[in-house]
Write a protein that binds this DNA or RNA. Structure first.
Length: 310
DNA sequence: AACAACACCAACCGCCCATTC
DNA sequence: AGAATGGGCGGTTGGTGTTGT
Protein backbone atom coordinates (compact mmCIF):
# COMPACT_ATOMS: atom_id res chain seq x y z
CA UNK A 1 0.00 0.00 0.00
CA UNK A 2 2.74 2.42 0.87
CA UNK A 3 2.14 6.05 1.63
CA UNK A 4 -1.24 7.44 2.44
CA UNK A 5 -3.01 9.12 -0.37
CA UNK A 6 -3.39 12.27 1.65
CA UNK A 7 0.37 12.53 1.93
CA UNK A 8 1.04 12.15 -1.76
CA UNK A 9 -0.09 15.62 -2.54
CA UNK A 10 2.81 17.78 -3.64
CA UNK A 11 1.54 20.91 -1.97
CA UNK A 12 1.48 19.58 1.57
CA UNK A 13 3.68 21.43 3.98
CA UNK A 14 6.04 19.57 6.27
CA UNK A 15 8.15 20.38 9.23
CA UNK A 16 7.37 22.45 12.27
CA UNK A 17 3.94 23.89 12.68
CA UNK A 18 3.62 27.65 12.78
CA UNK A 19 1.46 29.41 15.38
CA UNK A 20 -0.91 30.37 12.56
CA UNK A 21 -1.35 26.76 11.52
CA UNK A 22 -1.91 25.74 15.11
CA UNK A 23 -4.53 28.43 15.45
CA UNK A 24 -6.31 27.25 12.34
CA UNK A 25 -6.33 23.67 13.49
CA UNK A 26 -7.48 24.55 17.01
CA UNK A 27 -10.23 26.76 15.65
CA UNK A 28 -11.43 24.08 13.31
CA UNK A 29 -11.36 21.22 15.81
CA UNK A 30 -12.96 23.19 18.62
CA UNK A 31 -15.80 24.37 16.43
CA UNK A 32 -16.32 21.38 14.17
CA UNK A 33 -14.82 18.51 16.07
CA UNK A 34 -12.77 15.87 14.35
CA UNK A 35 -14.36 13.11 12.38
CA UNK A 36 -12.49 12.42 9.18
CA UNK A 37 -8.93 13.65 9.48
CA UNK A 38 -8.36 13.57 5.75
CA UNK A 39 -10.97 16.30 5.39
CA UNK A 40 -9.53 18.48 8.11
CA UNK A 41 -6.72 20.16 6.14
CA UNK A 42 -8.95 21.37 3.35
CA UNK A 43 -11.75 22.50 5.62
CA UNK A 44 -9.39 24.12 8.10
CA UNK A 45 -7.42 25.84 5.36
CA UNK A 46 -4.21 24.02 6.05
CA UNK A 47 -1.57 22.84 3.58
CA UNK A 48 -0.98 19.71 5.61
CA UNK A 49 -2.00 16.11 5.26
CA UNK A 50 -4.71 14.80 7.53
CA UNK A 51 -2.32 12.55 9.28
CA UNK A 52 -0.10 15.44 10.19
CA UNK A 53 -3.11 17.34 11.53
CA UNK A 54 -4.15 14.41 13.63
CA UNK A 55 -0.67 14.01 15.08
CA UNK A 56 -0.38 17.71 15.81
CA UNK A 57 -3.69 17.72 17.61
CA UNK A 58 -3.15 14.53 19.57
CA UNK A 59 0.43 15.16 20.56
CA UNK A 60 0.42 18.88 21.08
CA UNK A 61 -2.74 20.91 20.72
CA UNK A 62 -5.52 19.06 22.47
CA UNK A 63 -6.50 20.83 25.67
CA UNK A 64 -5.99 17.95 28.08
CA UNK A 65 -2.31 17.58 27.23
CA UNK A 66 -0.11 17.64 30.25
CA UNK A 67 3.27 19.14 29.54
CA UNK A 68 6.47 19.44 31.47
CA UNK A 69 8.79 17.00 33.11
CA UNK A 70 7.64 13.61 34.20
CA UNK A 71 7.12 13.30 37.92
CA UNK A 72 8.91 10.53 39.82
CA UNK A 73 5.56 8.81 40.17
CA UNK A 74 5.03 8.91 36.43
CA UNK A 75 8.54 7.65 35.83
CA UNK A 76 8.02 4.68 38.07
CA UNK A 77 4.70 3.94 36.52
CA UNK A 78 6.27 4.00 33.08
CA UNK A 79 8.98 1.64 34.24
CA UNK A 80 6.44 -0.71 35.69
CA UNK A 81 4.22 -0.63 32.68
CA UNK A 82 7.09 -0.98 30.28
CA UNK A 83 8.23 -4.00 32.22
CA UNK A 84 4.80 -5.46 31.81
CA UNK A 85 3.91 -4.59 28.23
CA UNK A 86 7.13 -3.53 26.53
CA UNK A 87 7.12 -0.87 23.82
CA UNK A 88 3.38 -0.51 23.69
CA UNK A 89 3.55 3.22 24.09
CA UNK A 90 -0.07 3.89 23.44
CA UNK A 91 -1.01 1.37 26.08
CA UNK A 92 1.40 2.93 28.55
CA UNK A 93 0.14 6.40 27.69
CA UNK A 94 -3.41 5.33 28.42
CA UNK A 95 -2.34 4.90 32.03
CA UNK A 96 -0.93 8.40 32.29
CA UNK A 97 -3.66 10.96 31.78
CA UNK A 98 -2.51 13.88 29.67
CA UNK A 99 0.63 12.19 28.44
CA UNK A 100 1.05 11.06 24.86
CA UNK A 101 2.59 7.91 23.54
CA UNK A 102 5.09 10.00 21.64
CA UNK A 103 6.16 11.85 24.75
CA UNK A 104 6.58 8.66 26.73
CA UNK A 105 8.44 7.03 23.87
CA UNK A 106 10.80 9.98 23.60
CA UNK A 107 11.34 9.97 27.31
CA UNK A 108 12.03 6.29 27.40
CA UNK A 109 14.39 6.35 24.44
CA UNK A 110 16.49 9.20 25.75
CA UNK A 111 16.51 7.56 29.13
CA UNK A 112 17.64 4.22 27.73
CA UNK A 113 20.36 5.90 25.71
CA UNK A 114 21.56 7.55 28.85
CA UNK A 115 21.57 4.28 30.74
CA UNK A 116 23.32 2.39 27.98
CA UNK A 117 26.03 5.00 27.83
CA UNK A 118 26.53 4.75 31.53
CA UNK A 119 26.22 0.98 31.67
CA UNK A 120 29.18 -1.10 32.69
CA UNK A 121 30.22 -4.15 30.64
CA UNK A 122 28.20 -7.24 31.47
CA UNK A 123 29.63 -9.42 34.21
CA UNK A 124 31.77 -12.32 33.04
CA UNK A 125 29.64 -14.76 35.00
CA UNK A 126 26.60 -13.94 33.00
CA UNK A 127 25.05 -16.94 31.40
CA UNK A 128 25.78 -17.04 27.69
CA UNK A 129 22.84 -16.46 25.44
CA UNK A 130 21.83 -18.74 22.67
CA UNK A 131 21.00 -16.11 20.11
CA UNK A 132 20.95 -12.40 19.44
CA UNK A 133 17.34 -11.95 20.32
CA UNK A 134 17.86 -13.59 23.64
CA UNK A 135 20.87 -11.45 24.28
CA UNK A 136 19.08 -8.26 23.33
CA UNK A 137 16.15 -9.14 25.46
CA UNK A 138 18.23 -9.98 28.50
CA UNK A 139 20.04 -6.72 28.08
CA UNK A 140 16.75 -4.94 27.78
CA UNK A 141 15.34 -6.49 30.92
CA UNK A 142 18.58 -5.94 32.78
CA UNK A 143 18.33 -2.29 31.91
CA UNK A 144 14.86 -2.16 33.30
CA UNK A 145 15.93 -3.75 36.52
CA UNK A 146 18.89 -1.45 36.72
CA UNK A 147 16.66 1.53 36.19
CA UNK A 148 14.15 0.35 38.69
CA UNK A 149 16.83 -0.19 41.27
CA UNK A 150 18.28 3.24 40.64
CA UNK A 151 14.90 4.76 41.23
CA UNK A 152 14.17 2.79 44.36
CA UNK A 153 17.39 2.81 46.27
CA UNK A 154 15.59 3.44 49.50
CA UNK A 155 13.57 0.30 49.10
CA UNK A 156 16.33 -1.97 48.02
CA UNK A 157 18.66 -1.93 50.95
CA UNK A 158 17.68 -5.29 52.29
CA UNK A 159 20.49 -7.72 51.42
CA UNK A 160 18.39 -10.73 50.36
CA UNK A 161 16.37 -8.83 47.84
CA UNK A 162 19.20 -6.67 46.63
CA UNK A 163 21.54 -9.60 46.23
CA UNK A 164 19.16 -11.82 44.43
CA UNK A 165 17.89 -9.11 42.17
CA UNK A 166 21.27 -7.79 41.18
CA UNK A 167 23.26 -10.95 40.81
CA UNK A 168 20.81 -13.53 39.68
CA UNK A 169 22.45 -15.77 37.06
CA UNK A 170 19.04 -16.64 35.78
CA UNK A 171 18.31 -15.67 32.21
CA UNK A 172 15.44 -13.30 32.13
CA UNK A 173 12.35 -13.76 30.07
CA UNK A 174 9.09 -11.98 29.96
CA UNK A 175 5.78 -13.56 29.25
CA UNK A 176 4.50 -12.56 25.92
CA UNK A 177 1.00 -11.33 26.52
CA UNK A 178 0.51 -9.84 23.10
CA UNK A 179 -2.52 -11.03 21.33
CA UNK A 180 -4.39 -11.63 24.53
CA UNK A 181 -7.50 -9.62 25.07
CA UNK A 182 -6.83 -6.93 27.59
CA UNK A 183 -8.68 -8.02 30.60
CA UNK A 184 -7.77 -11.53 30.80
CA UNK A 185 -7.04 -14.92 29.61
CA UNK A 186 -7.28 -18.33 30.98
CA UNK A 187 -6.34 -21.58 29.41
CA UNK A 188 -7.33 -24.14 31.95
CA UNK A 189 -4.24 -26.20 32.62
CA UNK A 190 -1.45 -23.77 31.91
CA UNK A 191 -0.71 -20.51 33.60
CA UNK A 192 -3.55 -18.12 33.85
CA UNK A 193 -3.17 -14.44 33.45
CA UNK A 194 -5.53 -11.76 34.52
CA UNK A 195 -5.27 -8.25 33.31
CA UNK A 196 -7.58 -5.43 33.72
CA UNK A 197 -7.54 -1.84 32.77
CA UNK A 198 -6.29 0.25 35.64
CA UNK A 199 -7.93 3.42 34.47
CA UNK A 200 -10.57 4.27 36.96
CA UNK A 201 -9.67 1.24 38.98
CA UNK A 202 -12.20 0.34 41.60
CA UNK A 203 -14.05 -2.70 42.77
CA UNK A 204 -16.76 -2.15 40.22
CA UNK A 205 -14.20 -2.19 37.46
CA UNK A 206 -12.69 -5.31 38.81
CA UNK A 207 -15.94 -7.16 39.09
CA UNK A 208 -17.04 -5.88 35.74
CA UNK A 209 -13.87 -7.27 34.26
CA UNK A 210 -14.43 -10.60 35.90
CA UNK A 211 -17.82 -10.65 34.33
CA UNK A 212 -16.29 -9.82 31.00
CA UNK A 213 -13.86 -12.64 31.43
CA UNK A 214 -16.60 -15.06 32.19
CA UNK A 215 -18.37 -13.97 29.07
CA UNK A 216 -15.23 -14.43 27.03
CA UNK A 217 -14.35 -17.72 28.56
CA UNK A 218 -16.84 -19.53 30.77
CA UNK A 219 -14.08 -21.74 32.18
CA UNK A 220 -12.25 -18.80 33.65
CA UNK A 221 -11.90 -18.92 37.38
CA UNK A 222 -11.09 -16.33 39.99
CA UNK A 223 -9.48 -16.89 43.28
CA UNK A 224 -9.67 -13.44 44.74
CA UNK A 225 -12.60 -11.81 46.26
CA UNK A 226 -11.06 -8.40 46.32
CA UNK A 227 -9.13 -6.36 43.87
CA UNK A 228 -6.59 -5.54 46.51
CA UNK A 229 -3.27 -7.12 45.71
CA UNK A 230 -4.63 -9.94 43.62
CA UNK A 231 -1.23 -10.53 42.09
CA UNK A 232 0.35 -11.32 45.41
CA UNK A 233 -2.49 -13.51 46.44
CA UNK A 234 -2.36 -15.39 43.18
CA UNK A 235 1.38 -15.64 43.06
CA UNK A 236 1.47 -16.99 46.55
CA UNK A 237 -1.02 -19.65 45.74
CA UNK A 238 0.03 -20.51 42.24
CA UNK A 239 3.77 -20.38 41.59
CA UNK A 240 5.53 -23.76 41.70
CA UNK A 241 7.75 -24.64 44.64
CA UNK A 242 10.91 -24.83 42.61
CA UNK A 243 10.36 -21.36 41.27
CA UNK A 244 11.87 -18.32 42.80
CA UNK A 245 9.69 -15.28 42.98
CA UNK A 246 10.92 -11.91 43.97
CA UNK A 247 9.16 -8.64 44.27
CA UNK A 248 10.28 -5.15 44.90
CA UNK A 249 7.87 -2.40 45.63
CA UNK A 250 7.40 1.29 45.37
CA UNK A 251 5.96 2.90 48.41
CA UNK A 252 4.63 6.08 46.91
CA UNK A 253 0.95 6.25 47.37
CA UNK A 254 -0.74 6.64 44.07
CA UNK A 255 -3.42 5.16 41.97
CA UNK A 256 -1.97 2.66 39.63
CA UNK A 257 -2.92 0.02 37.26
CA UNK A 258 -2.62 -3.61 37.66
CA UNK A 259 -1.01 -6.42 35.80
CA UNK A 260 -1.87 -9.57 37.59
CA UNK A 261 -0.40 -12.94 36.89
CA UNK A 262 -1.37 -16.27 38.31
CA UNK A 263 0.71 -19.40 38.47
CA UNK A 264 -0.35 -22.84 39.41
CA UNK A 265 1.37 -23.10 42.72
CA UNK A 266 3.39 -20.86 44.88
CA UNK A 267 5.13 -22.41 47.83
CA UNK A 268 8.05 -21.56 49.99
CA UNK A 269 7.38 -17.88 49.95
CA UNK A 270 8.91 -15.73 52.54
CA UNK A 271 7.41 -12.37 53.24
CA UNK A 272 10.38 -10.28 54.02
CA UNK A 273 8.69 -7.15 55.01
CA UNK A 274 5.27 -5.71 55.38
CA UNK A 275 4.66 -2.15 54.42
CA UNK A 276 2.48 -0.13 52.18
CA UNK A 277 3.31 -0.18 48.58
CA UNK A 278 1.73 0.43 45.25
CA UNK A 279 4.06 -0.91 42.65
CA UNK A 280 5.92 -4.13 42.20
CA UNK A 281 8.15 -6.00 39.88
CA UNK A 282 7.99 -9.75 39.96
CA UNK A 283 10.69 -12.14 39.00
CA UNK A 284 10.50 -15.83 38.60
CA UNK A 285 13.55 -18.07 38.63
CA UNK A 286 12.82 -19.65 35.31
CA UNK A 287 10.62 -17.08 33.66
CA UNK A 288 12.42 -13.93 34.70
CA UNK A 289 10.44 -10.77 34.93
CA UNK A 290 6.85 -11.74 35.31
CA UNK A 291 4.99 -8.53 35.58
CA UNK A 292 5.57 -5.01 36.54
CA UNK A 293 3.03 -3.50 38.79
CA UNK A 294 0.57 -3.90 41.52
CA UNK A 295 -1.79 -1.76 43.41
CA UNK A 296 -2.35 -1.30 47.09
CA UNK A 297 -4.59 1.23 48.68
CA UNK A 298 -3.04 3.55 51.21
CA UNK A 299 -4.81 1.76 54.01
CA UNK A 300 -3.51 -1.62 53.02
CA UNK A 301 -1.06 -3.31 55.31
CA UNK A 302 -0.22 -6.04 52.88
CA UNK A 303 3.34 -6.91 52.17
CA UNK A 304 5.53 -5.15 49.73
CA UNK A 305 8.82 -6.96 49.51
CA UNK A 306 8.48 -10.54 48.71
CA UNK A 307 11.21 -12.98 48.02
CA UNK A 308 11.37 -16.71 48.05
CA UNK A 309 14.16 -19.15 47.72
CA UNK A 310 14.14 -22.63 46.27
C1' DA B 1 33.36 33.60 22.55
C1' DA B 2 33.24 29.82 19.46
C1' DC B 3 32.76 25.39 18.37
C1' DA B 4 31.52 20.50 19.13
C1' DA B 5 29.02 17.08 21.26
C1' DC B 6 25.06 15.79 23.34
C1' DA B 7 20.12 15.70 24.64
C1' DC B 8 15.55 16.47 23.75
C1' DC B 9 11.45 16.14 21.27
C1' DA B 10 8.26 17.39 17.40
C1' DA B 11 7.28 15.50 13.31
C1' DC B 12 7.54 12.20 9.79
C1' DC B 13 7.68 7.43 7.87
C1' DG B 14 6.08 3.07 7.04
C1' DC B 15 3.58 -0.68 8.48
C1' DC B 16 -0.59 -2.88 10.19
C1' DC B 17 -5.37 -3.39 10.83
C1' DA B 18 -10.24 -2.31 10.49
C1' DT B 19 -13.67 -0.48 7.76
C1' DT B 20 -15.82 0.83 3.56
C1' DC B 21 -16.92 0.36 -1.15
C1' DA C 1 -13.70 -11.25 -2.12
C1' DG C 2 -10.59 -7.95 -2.68
C1' DA C 3 -9.02 -3.25 -3.39
C1' DA C 4 -9.02 1.31 -1.43
C1' DT C 5 -9.00 4.19 2.38
C1' DG C 6 -8.32 6.01 6.96
C1' DG C 7 -6.70 5.71 11.57
C1' DG C 8 -3.42 4.13 14.86
C1' DC C 9 0.94 2.77 16.28
C1' DG C 10 6.03 2.13 16.91
C1' DG C 11 10.39 3.40 14.92
C1' DT C 12 13.25 6.91 13.22
C1' DT C 13 14.91 11.37 11.83
C1' DG C 14 16.39 15.95 12.05
C1' DG C 15 16.08 20.56 14.01
C1' DT C 16 17.00 23.12 18.02
C1' DG C 17 18.48 24.07 22.54
C1' DT C 18 21.90 23.00 26.12
C1' DT C 19 26.19 21.75 27.96
C1' DG C 20 31.01 21.00 27.81
C1' DT C 21 35.62 22.17 26.15
Amino acid sequence: MGQHSCCNQQKVKRGLWSPEEDEKLIRYITTRGYGCWSEVPEKAGLQRCGKSCRLRWINYLRPDIRRGRFTPEEEKLIISLHGAVGNRWAHIASHLPGRTDNEIKNYWNSWIKKKIRKAAPPPATKKPCTNDQHSQFNSYVSNQIDNFLNNNQDLLTKPPLQDTLCSSPTPLFMFDTSGLPEGIITDGNQRRELFHDPVGLNSETWHMNQQEVQELNPTASFSMDSYYLPSLINLESTVPMDHQVQCCGVTEEREMGLECLEREELMNVEWVESQQCSSFLFWDQSEGLLCGEEIAPASSNTGTMLSSYP
